[in-house]
Design a binder for these strands. Structure first.
Length: 930
RNA sequence: GCCCGGGUGGUGGAAUUGGUAGACACGCAGGACUUAAAAUCCUGUGGCUAGUAAUAGUCGUGCGGGUUCAAGUCCCGCCCUGGGUACCA
């Protein structure tokens, strides 16, 4: 005796959530007899604001797929955890002294409570938290493996990471003359004797050039006043964002990851995975492979000096009218003439104090200085001037470019600005080089001696061949991607499993892992600019000091999907048998903002772990779906200036008004709840309202969801008012998963009404459970099988919004037929259960089943009910649809044609003449062309 | 600037291979039930023109062209918008 009311929903959802928790219904078993399916959500950072309605969007989609695959007989792994190291908790700790672990644990509890009441089928026994020592023990262990590895280009087809011991053995034997490795650019050639002559420190310094996790000098933004390193985001106009102190670019010893070794494999692997094309494209651009040529330009009046440039357009070499080198270029000092020295030095100083970010963001500003030096173009022996300018980056290519102002936008702008000559080398439709609206051309070569008349790609080939023949350069593949910095001057992160002995970095042995975070009294850097960990008293490894920086945010998230496979293993990061069964992630759902961060690093670590023999998968995530973002819709009330009167949105133009944010929870379909508004804030208590049609209508605007805009919608409220099933279906109904869309609850009643109507199919007017055991009619079967097929197709192509609609149509049709046959309703309950598990479980039980709906076999649709015996074809005449006729489905085309031609309507149109042709599209249309 | 999405009623959105555009839902209008309201159920609902009406005609998927018997869908040229990225030689 209960209808699908608020109280009943609450009872049902609690009952089943408790039941499933108690019976461990979601535990993934390592049952290798069944095919596996691994569905993963990007684990969240547990922020203090709690879960908002945007979070569950992707989680609901992945939960539907998990439950569906399970019903289809797969052994499903669907875990959840927390990316728990991060800046906000640390910042909060610096301000309040509250330990980040405490804040984080509290936030995680909130998240888990909120996630639980939405009814996700997570196997919570497999939860991981990256800040848990039992977890980061293995993050440290993986770091150690990467420290102990180098990239051997000769191993396998594309090269692979190998243990460093193999490298050492080879160095002992033959030095590095036979070694082809991805290593530092400045690695010298050494013999076995030289290697043996190194002391321990010398050997380690040399090995650092090869290790995949290595220490090296890198450029950082150093703020002396704050005593800390700043990220590019924290620097504005050459001064720190906080405090406005000067920031300098200095070199510092930092941990890095040699991700560049994997550039080619990261690029090629993209072709093997089912990811959204935009994400793949972003990764391709990030890796930034360019094939070109490096060649030397001799410096005029310096017989011994030459400048090496990198170019992808060697074909345009006859158009070179000057050269530009980066301010940091090593030859700047040597080649600058005395007359130009003052200007150059000043320019270099300014450039040094601007962060890379800034240099990039000021694309429009053209700056530079002439060095006074000249180089010789090896192709035509012309003398061209050498300039320095910060549009040339020291870190890319060789830090020097041959400038061709007639075919490169930046070179062109530079030449215009400093009045340098422009020589056209390409003949094309827009070859007027003096135009201001510059356009790079493509066409055939002109003014280019032996290249004249060739198209660009032929010319490149011919020119490169000549460069190599002259012995002045080589064909060269270049990548834009840099090695990844792997250290931060922060507290709340994984400590490195590294200590120093006589300045030599050494690994803490596996048996002594994890190196746990020490307690400290304050979480900020020390006065002397050391990282916070320097505050830890007596924190050392057998008297030797630990590395004091911590790992970056992406360390823990770059391998977590492996830990879910075997989360409690204390001996390995995951056992070999479990890794070989679960292997990789079949479906990964998350936001596209991680395209070049997390997703790239994860692929890198996965490949490295594979090389070292710990996992089998070359790629971690087979299929990726990006869910869109849910934005907030802020609501506004309009106060007439200087009064306590608020005017409804439609009438606001008649007054001088100030819009004020109103809490979205007081607004229902744009209508303000005036009583709630008056109570909301004391100064609104005596507010007056000018209404339209008896209502106060609010204005709205789409903005980011934020507390200060009063537009945050918390899923808890929806669950309280409508239940988890309605929330789940409504979020899916809102639109395509991939689309970003503003949150609104305008249509939520429709979804709720659907569920109630569905419930009513099983109940009579007095709320007694009644289902009929009669044999369904063909029409009823048709509805059932059509729905099952549609929903199945929709899930397979991740179109959840359309399957919600399909359920509604099905329910409406059954309602209007007053159909309550068991043979129809039972399969529908199963099909609905991935979307609305609680109501499905309750109805399943009422249908008399002892077993769980979670394990029911997914219904199969039967083609015989989907085939129409006859079909109503629209008949179109000259493309205009005029009449409809019925034909048997198996009628031959010729007969249909005859019938159509004989019909009165067609006769009238054709006036007895034979048509040019008759087009019959089976199942769609018959078209008569006159 | 470059790369990738998107633009369809009052609103969110359907339309899977070029084949009856607007499914489904919200909102709105009318009706039933009710003393009344809420809830629920039923009916209608892209614009314009004509008609008492059923209906008929006509326009219609950001704009301008094109291909086709047939275009939201394909091609060319624009406009607007969301996201990513940024001096990569």
């Amino acid at each position: 005796m209960a209808d699908y009311s608020k109280d009943e929903i609450k009872r049902i959802e609690k009952k089943w959530q408790d039941t499933w928790a108690a019976t461990g219904a979601y535990k993934a078993k390592d049952d290798t007899s069944r095919p596996k399916y691994y569905v993963l959500d990007m684990f969240p950072y547990p922020s203090g604001a709690g879960l908002h309605v945007g979070h569950p969007l992707g989680y609901i989609a992945s939960d539907i797929v998990s439950r569906y695959k399970r019903l289809k007989g797969f052994n499903v792994l669907h875990p959840m955890g927390f990316d728990a190291f991060g800046l906000p908790a640390e910042q909060y700790a610096i301000q309040t002294g509250q330990h980040p672990a405490v804040t984080t644990a509290k936030n995680i509890e909130t998240y888990k409570r909120q996630l639980r009441q939405i009814g996700f089928s997570y196997d919570w026994d497999r939860e991981v938290q990256t800040c848990d020592p039992a977890y980061y023990k293995w993050t440290q262990w993986i770091f150690a493996q990467l420290f102990n590895a180098w990239y051997n280009k000769k191993a396998g087809a594309e090269g692979k990471a190998e243990p460093i011991s193999a490298l050492i053995a080879e160095l002992e034997k033959n030095g590095n003359k036979n070694i082809a490795a991805v290593c530092d650019e400045d690695t010298p050639a050494i013999t076995a004797e030289q290697w043996k002559s190194f002391d321990e420190k010398g050997k380690e310094d040399f090995l650092q050039k090869y290790r995949i996790a290595y220490l090296s000098e890198t450029m950082v933004n150093w703020c002396a006043a704050l005593g800390t390193v700043l990220s590019n985001d924290e620097v504005k106009d050459g001064v720190s964002e906080r405090g406005g102190y000067p920031v300098e670019r200095i070199k510092m010893m930092q941990w890095s990851m040699r991700i560049t070794a994997y550039a080619e494999r990261l690029l090629k692997g993209l072709d093997t995975i089912d990811w959204p094309e935009p994400v793949k494209e972003m990764q391709r651009n990030w890796i930034g492979k360019s094939i070109g040529c490096e060649l030397d330009f001799a410096v005029s009046d310096h017989n011994d000096l030459s400048i090496r440039v990198f170019t992808t357009r060697i074909d345009t070499i006859y158009g070179v009218t000057f050269m530009v080198i980066a301010p940091e270029h090593e030859l700047v000092d040597k080649i600058t003439t005395p007359e130009q020295r003052a200007e150059v030095t000043q320019y270099v100083d300014i450039a040094k104090n601007r962060s890379e970010r800034e240099r990039m963001s000021e694309v429009k500003r053209i700056t530079g200085a002439f060095t006074g030096a000249y180089v010789i173009n090896p192709f035509n022996n012309q003398k061209v001037p050498v300039w320095i300018a910060d549009y040339v980056l020291a870190g890319y290519g060789t830090g020097a470019v041959m400038a061709v102002p007639s075919s490169d936008t930046r070179d062109h702008a530079f030449a215009k600005h400093f009045n340098l000559p422009i020589v056209d080398v390409l003949e094309g439709p827009t070859s007027d080089i003096n135009k201001d609206n510059f356009e790079a051309k493509s066409g055939t070569m002109i003014n280019s001696d032996f290249l004249n008349g060739l198209v660009w790609n032929e010319a490149i080939e011919k020119a490169v061949t000549k460069v190599e023949a002259l012995g002045i350069g080589v064909r060269k593949v270049n990548y834009r991607m840099r090695d990844a910095i792997f250290g931060r001057q922060r507290y709340w992160g994984e400590p490195f499993p590294v200590y120093f002995e006589n300045g030599i970095p050494k690994l803490v042995p596996d048996s002594d892992l994890p190196v746990t975070l020490p307690e400290i009294d304050q979480y900020k850097p020390t006065e002397t600019g050391e990282p916070p960990l320097a505050r830890a008293k007596g924190w050392n490894y057998k008297g030797k000091s630990y590395e004091l920086t911590t790992m970056p945010g992406w360390a823990g998230s770059s391998w977590y999907w492996f830990r879910y496979m075997d989360p409690n293993n204390e001996k390995e990061f995951a056992s070999q048998s479990k890794i070989s069964y679960w292997k990789d992630v079949d479906l990964y759902i998350g936001g596209s903002e991680h395209a070049t961060g997390h997703l790239l690093y994860s692929r890198f670590w996965c490949k490295a772990l594979k090389d070292l023999g710990y996992v089998q998968a070359e790629e971690p995530f087979k299929k990726l779906i990006n869910q869109g973002h849910i934005q907030g819709v802020s609501k506004f009330v309009y106060r007439i200036n200087g009064t306590h009167k608020f005017v409804s949105a439609g009438l606001r133009k008649q007054y001088e008004v100030t819009p004020l944010h109103a809490d979205v929870n007081m607004v229902d379909n744009d209508v303000l709840n005036i009583e709630a508004f008056k109570k909301w804030r004391d100064d609104f208590a005596d507010a007056e309202f000018i209404l339209e049609d008896g209502k106060y209508i609010c204005g709205s605007e789409v903005e980011k969801m934020s507390k200060s805009k009063y537009n945050v919608v918390n899923p808890d409220d929806i669950v309280t008012n409508y239940g988890a099933d309605t929330l789940r279906m409504y979020e899916m109904f809102l639109g395509p998963l991939e689309l970003s869309k503003p949150w609104n609850t305008n249509g939520i009643d429709g979804v709720y009404k659907f569920l109630r109507r569905f419930w009513n199919l099983f109940h009579d007017k007095n709320e007694n459970f009644v289902v009929s055991e009669d044999e369904p009619t063909r029409d009823e079967f048709k509805i059932l099988h059509k729905t099952i097929r549609k929903v199945e197709e929709d899930i397979d192509r991740f179109s959840f919004n359309t399957s919600v609609s399909e359920f509604m149509i099905c329910c409406n049709e059954l309602s209007s037929m007053k159909s309550n046959k068991r043979a129809i309703l039972e399969p529908l309950v199963i099909a609905l259960s991935p979307y609305a598990p609680h109501i499905a479980a309750e109805l399943w039980e009422k249908l008399g089943h002892k077993d769980s709906v979670l394990d029911a076999p997914y219904p199969k649709y039967d083609e015989q009910y989907l085939v129409e015996s006859s079909f109503e074809y629209p008949i179109s005449i000259n493309g205009k649809v005029r009449v409809k006729m019925n034909f048997a489905l198996d009628m031959p085309k010729e007969d249909i044609e005859k019938l159509v031609m004989a019909s009165e309507a067609v006769q009238k149109w054709t006036e007895g003449k034979a048509p040019k042709k008759v087009i019959i599209v089976p199942g769609k249309i018959v078209n008569v062309v006159l």
